[in-house]
Design a protein around this nucleic acid. Structure first.
Lengths: 237, 237
DNA sequence: GAGTGGTCTAGACCACTGT
DNA sequence: CAGTGGTCTAGACCACTCG
């Protein structure tokens, strides 16, 4: 919120989410917005481009910026969002069970993928997520100990990302994710309430810090009926 | 390719994809790039921001722009890409079967969602995608006839998006997508080679033109073992 | 301290839309 | 035609990294 264009982005996106700005209506023109916010046109355009990227508006040359219907899809799970952040938006009964927390020597393939030296250790975390009393998500995390020296079960039960960003003051930058559907493993059957489902949805994710160092590998294994992924995509440049 | 910053984006992304620029190396600084491309710094920054959005580089304040490893994930299916475009990147034996092409009155829910007047008709298309002789994807499309007046089985067997963009000269803007896993319908069992799989992955997609008009609803139903979704995501603003 | 990327400005010209 | 968004410029100041 320190920068002008982010402040403008937040202000306008809030107005769209609250319904103060209606779908299919036009925003004030860029020139009008420069007056409203006492700033230059390029700064306004930075804010509007962010809104466009995130699916709030569509800019149309010669006409203006149209407000898009944001609420058709109730909650976007796209982007890089932690479980804690998602569960706060839901009002479900949500509980996290920490099944395992240990410091281990990484496997050969992990060592290579994470570019670790031979003495580096990794945290291994296994957590179950319970919605309305049902165990529907199994999260398996590998974290580089170099970057995250201390971990406790309490931190894992609360929010890893909150701890990393707020306590350790690291900045999470980006992630590469892959979604596939596979047959459940014995571990899946043991730790999840699969109820006869013969597949699980697996989200494999490599998460990187601001400075492009890999700090986390996650496999998030979902019972298929409780899985949902929502995305907003723009066409090629 | 008409604009400077897109030309620079294409040039640098090509160098990264080809391996001419190596992962973990630094790009020339923004000031150096202004000299190399004979342009202003803001134009260079537009190109670099695009590269950053698309996962090619990571910008680090005080240091420079690091080239990221693009090939770890072989082919990104994220964004808004047609089946034809994907299949051209694969060297698979790929075939499209047009099961149905008809002009219909829209269902009540479609009429509402697509904001159609009561006389509007929609195209209904059902297509099966065959990889290596196996029917693994079922695509069900609804298209607004107002916008796409004429359709033939030949167009559907080739590429809808190519026809819409190149023949009709419409510009596809953005899409909202949702991925869920469900039990197969009778139609799925009939038209796909499910081979005992008890789930299908469904990608529901609303596609919009440049001017924010909805023109297409698609359900793309995949056999789970042939489904794969790859995504690059940046953390919150 | 020199060099990096991040923000912001004021102004210019263009392509497109509506009337 | 006037008004819209799209591109591009030249310059300024700041926050950060690294030796």
């Amino acid at each position: 919120m320190k920068t002008k264009y982010l402040a403008i982005y937040n202000e306008i996106s809030k107005q769209i989410k609250s319904g103060e700005l209606l779908p299919d209506s036009l925003l004030p023109s860029e020139n009008e917005l420069t007056d409203i916010y006492h700033t230059s046109r390029e700064t306004i355009r930075k804010a509007l481009n962010l809104l466009s990227q995130d699916g709030y508006i569509q800019k149309i040359r010669g006409k203006g910026s149209v407000v898009l219907n944001v609420n058709k899809f109730d909650f976007p799970v796209s982007g890089l969002v932690s479980f804690k952040e998602i569960s706060q938006k839901l009002d479900n009964q949500v509980r996290t069970i920490v099944n395992e927390l240990s410091l281990e020597k990484p496997s050969q393939s992990m060592k290579k993928q994470m570019q670790l030296s031979s003495t580096d250790l990794v945290w291994k975390i296994v957590r179950t997520r319970e919605f309305d009393g049902q165990k529907v998500i199994l999260d398996k995390d590998i974290l580089v100990q170099n970057l995250i020296p201390n971990l406790t079960k309490e931190i894992c039960a609360d929010s890893l990302y909150h701890y990393i960003e707020k306590e350790l003051n690291l900045t999470i930058g980006f992630a590469k994710k892959e979604i596939v559907v596979v047959e459940p493993t014995d571990e899946d059957r043991e730790l999840l309430d699969l109820e006869g489902f013969s597949n699980v949805v697996v989200i494999k994710s490599y998460a990187f810090l601001d400075d492009a160092t890999l700090f986390q590998y996650t496999e998030s294994r979902h019972r298929p009926d409780k899985f949902r992924f929502v995305d907003f995509a723009r066409r090629n440049h």
